[in-house]
Design a binder for these strands. Structure first.
Lengths: 206, 206
DNA sequence: ACGGTTCTGTACTGAGTCGTCAAGAACTCG
DNA sequence: CGAGTTCTTGACGACTCAGTACAGAACCGT
């Protein structure tokens, strides 16, 4: 029938995500993406549309992957829910600093750069924030069921607070605040959760 | 001697701050600043240097003003230190949403956009974060002296945590998370501070 | 009033960017 | 092998932007 494509759509999308995460929206040209993927500009336009469309597709792909990752970290049995929360909170700084390329949350980045003027992007960003809050809420509720968090605590507020803290650690890590200070802050935040006496008295784990 | 300037340097700097805060570094052209100030580009270059220099000067001016504002909110007598901390924490969302132009923290914005590649900006941003942490620490220490916060709490970690939360609320507000949710999260965070029994039992204020 | 100095506005250059287009390449079906 | 279809490439035009240059305007001391 016709000439087949020589590129993998997912590969191009991943490259676009990397470029936008690294350079921002205004700071990334289609030539950058073209160079990163080896694809000519014509092919890019034919397959993905204009710059904004490429951006929205890349952001959508990031959101999809981010939610998969978030669930992988937070979903699980009730008895270890509080530990998963602890890990999530404490890994806040690492989300930026451990990454080879010092990325960080793309949703946070574009919430700051373009949400004000790009309603389509803003909707995607709000979506991922909301769903991450929901995943956190599920984990908080699990910890409450297991008796590690106070049953009368406001789970929604806790989830929102934890996510905000995570986003803030991201920003501060990018601003150069020392890893040790952020880790200590994260531990402090965890101790500020409404932990039950049962949690504090539980036997230490391996 | 010579022709005097028709513009006020501070006015131009303020306009530059506004433009960069609104549009980001890559998204703001010198024409934008020129238009916003009514000043020709030639005068801009003669007085402020190239784009990056203008940006650094604008960021420096923002940092100066931000520290003045932070001190105005947090400095004060020991007996109301805990209230000032409460106000600061709870005003996190308002920092974006109450502002007429929905700005938010310029340091946070550029930590995300340019800190990775612009060491000069990164140093300024780290400076404002560090000093804000110090101001918060002073306020925390004051609250400890007055017996509202546990004396054995790690003030540095608390200060860093509170600042991270503030930055994160900023990001989430820009991402469209509802004001009510952020306010509830802020209240939750405040309750997570190591408040003393003396604070909880104190008589309600006007 | 006048000369010297500084400021202002605008036009220009060179580079980069977006989006399009047309010509050629690769593949499949008949 | 040929026709038709789809993909790829590179170039092109219009535009924007950063930074410079130059001519003229405004001012002050003498």
């Amino acid at each position: 029938m016709a000439r087949p494509r020589t590129f993998d759509e997912q590969t191009v999308l991943d490259a676009a995500v990397r470029q936008f995460r690294a350079g921002g929206y205004a700071g990334t040209s289609l030539d950058d993406i073209s160079a990163a993927t080896g694809l000519g500009r014509g092919s890019l336009y034919a397959s993905f549309g204009d710059k904004h469309t490429v951006f929205i597709k890349a952001l959508t792909e990031y959101v999809r992957q981010a939610l998969v990752d978030t669930r992988a970290m937070l979903d699980g049995p009730d008895d270890s829910a509080i530990d998963r929360l602890h890990t999530w909170i404490v890994s806040g700084a690492g989300f930026v600093l451990d990454d080879d390329e010092h990325f960080g949350c793309m949703a946070g980045k574009f919430a700051v750069e373009v949400a004000e003027t790009d309603q389509e992007a803003k909707a995607l960003i709000l979506g991922v924030f909301s769903q991450q809050q929901q995943i956190l809420l599920d984990c908080v509720t699990a910890a409450q069921r297991h008796g590690d968090l106070a049953a009368d605590a406001n789970g929604c507020a806790l989830a929102c607070m934890i996510l905000a803290l995570n986003r803030g650690m991201d920003v501060m890590a990018k601003g150069g605040v020392a890893r040790a200070a952020l880790d200590a802050a994260a531990e402090q935040a965890f101790r500020g959760l409404p932990l039950t006496a049962a949690y504090r008295d539980r036997p230490a784990r391996a």
